[in-house]
């Protein structure tokens, strides 16, 4: 009996230590260049940048390049790669992953947790736009650094508020201030002028003398025009095979 208890206890201990081991186990590096499109030097530079941003913002910013996504779509591959490698910080596994598939020549950005809302669909399109030039010129390191830079901007903006643009505020203040000053001095100028000719004779209208003998309102025709509403920046999300929610978007190159 005692042995049995001891065995159970040992098993339990093993489980706990394993669990601790797994949870404290370092996740794979935030950069994985499976397609080998980066030089050793670029890899080091990008990795240190990704690590710095990830630590500062409490959200993992990950990049993975592959030559094939096997039989998965880029979205499934990116979501699964993020989930099963244990990326993501906090209880909601916040993070963002960029997948570059050199075989299918497709890119995918997958967002998780806080990053789903921080990086909207439009933001993802914007990031791809910014990367496009470097991707077309096969400067993958440059494209990835651009991606990292924008992720930092959007996540930081969502968490800490976007940085105050003092030049913009000053510009608005100067223009609005001038309008106020022109109106105020215009009123003062107006006080000096009291001689104006009158083009109407409303003072001499006999009260109650208006007598309408005919009053007709006839409908003629109508026109209908339509214009497209501006699209709102939203974050569409889906559930991956692990059961977690992800946002994301992709583009071919």
């Amino acid at each position: 009996m005692k042995n049995k208890i001891l065995a159970v206890l040992l098993a339990l201990l093993l489980c706990i230590s394993l669990a601790v081991c797994v949870s404290s186990q370092d996740v794979p590096p935030r950069l994985s260049d499976g397609a080998d499109i980066l030089t050793e030097k670029d890899e080091l530079e990008i990795l240190s940048e990704l690590d710095r941003i990830s630590t500062e913002l409490s959200a993992d910013v990950v990049v993975v390049t592959v030559t094939t996504t096997e039989d998965k779509s880029p979205m499934e591959f990116a979501d699964d790669y993020f989930d099963y490698n244990g990326y993501g910080q906090g209880s909601d596994h916040s993070g963002v992953l960029l997948l570059i598939d050199m075989g299918g020549r497709e890119m995918w950005i997958s967002t998780t947790g806080l990053c789903i809302e921080a990086i909207t669909d439009l933001d993802i399109e914007n990031i791809f736009d910014m990367m496009e030039y470097d991707i077309d010129n096969e400067n993958y390191a440059g494209a990835i650094l651009t991606y990292a830079e924008y992720c930092e901007f959007y996540i930081d903006g969502a968490v800490n508020g976007y940085p105050t643009n003092y030049f913009f505020i000053a510009g608005v203040a100067i223009v609005v201030g001038l309008v106020i000053a022109l109106i105020a001095t215009g009123v003062m100028k107006g006080q000096l002028k009291s001689v104006r000719s009158r083009s109407e004779a409303g003072d001499y209208l006999k009260k109650g003398s208006l007598n309408l003998t005919r009053s007709s309102d006839m409908y003629l025709y109508r026109t209908v025009t339509r214009e497209k509403l501006p699209e709102k920046s939203s974050s569409s999300s889906h559930t991956s095979s692990s059961g977690r929610s992800h946002g994301g978007g992709g583009r071919s190159f």
């Binding site: 006999k206 007598n211 009053s215 007709s216 209908v224 339509r226 214009e227 509403l229």
Partner: peptide, 27 residues
């Protein structure tokens, strides 16, 4: 508007008014 478009409908009318009005002492 619906989810994608904003519609503007303009209806045109012909409005006619006939009548009289008195003025006194327009200087």
């Amino acid at each position: 508007s619906d989810s994608t478009y904003r519609y503007t409908e303009t209806s045109f009318f012909n409005v006619t008014r006939e009548g009289s009005l008195g003025f006194e002492g327009v200087p």
